[in-house]
Amino acid sequence: MPPRSTATVRQQRLGAELRKLRERADLSTREAGRKLGVDPARISNIESGRFGVSADRVRSFALGYDCTDEPYIEVLAAMTTSRSRNWWDDYRDILPPVLLDLSEMEEHATALRTVQFTHLPGLLQTPDYARVIFQQNVPALSPPMVEHRLSHRIKRQGVLYADTSMPYTGIIHEAALRMQFGGPEIMRKQLAHIAEMSEREEVTVLVLPFSAGIFPGAGQTVVIAHGPHPRLDTVQLDTEHGSEFLHAEAQLVKYRTIMGCMEDLSLDATASRDFIHALATDR
Rank of each mutant, 00 (worst) to 15 (best):
L18K: 01
R19P: 08
L21N: 07
E23W: 02
R24D: 15
R30F: 06
A32T: 06
D39T: 09
S44D: 02
E47R: 00
S48E: 03
A55Q: 00
R59H: 01
F61G: 00
Y65L: 03
T68K: 12
P71F: 04
Y72G: 03
I73K: 05
E74P: 06
S82A: 15
S82P: 09
R83N: 08
R83K: 04
S84D: 11
S84V: 13
W88G: 03
L99P: 01
L100C: 01
A109I: 13
T110I: 11
T110D: 09
R113Y: 10
Q116Y: 01
Q125K: 02
R131M: 15
Q136K: 12
S142A: 15
E147Q: 12
H148F: 14
R149E: 14
R149T: 05
S151C: 08
R153P: 10
K155W: 08
A162K: 15
M166H: 04
H173D: 14
H173W: 11
H173S: 14
E174C: 07
A175R: 07
G182A: 09
P184T: 13
K189F: 09
Q190W: 14
M197A: 03
V203E: 00
S211Q: 10
S211H: 03
G213Y: 04
G213F: 07
G213I: 07
G217Y: 10
G217C: 06
V223M: 08
H226A: 13
L232W: 01
T234W: 02
G242I: 01
S243I: 07
S243V: 09
E244H: 11
L246V: 00
Q251D: 15
K254E: 13
T257P: 05
M259N: 04
M262F: 00
M262S: 00
S266D: 01
D268I: 06
A269S: 10
A269W: 05
S272L: 00
F275K: 01
T281Y: 10
